[in-house]
């Protein structure tokens, strides 16, 4: 555990430059914090409400919100599924616009039955066409379902399934309790 000290001048210069670099770039990244990499806070709220309808918390266990599905989708859109970014950005806007037209409120403010009704319409491509020119409502809905399932059941290192909560729900002992099997 020895603490290394900067040994020679070349390394020192390297160090200085890096530290300066750090200080100089500082102001460029001062901004309001959200825990998300891709979504805005409002987008995240809306999508969370949708995911929670797909996997709601009930007597069987936690729902998509508690499993942190939103973090999975956010992380994947930022790191991996970059080609889906537009689909989400436009799609979420279209959902809110459609919701405002049909129910005069943002989707996440609707009561559960209205949210379900809305999602059924979305699945059947029955939302106002004018908002869905660039994006298929039913296609986007299927994408969300897929991503919600992945985020809920997939391994936590991808962002979702917080605290392995879905494994617990299906009674999967994780991490598996087993010894070193020395003598067997």
């Amino acid at each position: 555990m020895s603490h290394q000290i900067i040994q020679d001048r070349r390394e020192f210069l390297k160090a200085s430059i890096m530290a300066f670099g750090g200080a100089i770039m500082l102001p460029s990244c001062l901004r309001n914090y959200t825990p998300f990499l891709f979504f805005t806070a409002d987008e995240a709220l809306l999508l969370t409400a949708i995911c929670e309808q797909i996997i709601p918390a009930d007597e069987n266990g936690p729902g998509a919100t508690q499993a942190g599905v939103i973090y999975y989708i956010d992380k994947q859109l930022y790191e991996v599924f970059t080609w889906e970014q537009d689909k989400y950005r436009l799609g979420l806007t279209a959902i809110n616009e459609s919701s405002l037209e049909l129910f005069s409120a943002n989707f996440d403010m609707l009561p559960t039955d209205k949210q379900l009704l809305f999602l059924k319409k979305m699945e059947g491509n029955e939302l106002p066409d004018s908002y869905w020119k660039d994006n298929s409502a039913s296609g986007f809905f299927r994408t969300i379902i897929q991503h919600t399932m992945q985020g809920f059941y997939g391994p936590p290192r991808h962002g979702g399934n917080k605290n392995y909560i879905s494994y617990k729900m299906i009674n999967l002992d994780y991490p598996y309790v087993v010894g070193r099997n020395l003598y067997e």
């Binding site: 806070a41 409400a49 918390a57 007597e59 729902g63 919100t65 508690q66 559960t112």
Partner: peptide, 15 residues
């Protein structure tokens, strides 16, 4: 954020 999701869930979501 969760507090703003005032749904009528079967179970309140506990954080």
């Amino acid at each position: 954020f969760a507090q703003r999701l005032d749904h009528d869930h079967a179970e309140p979501v506990v954080f």
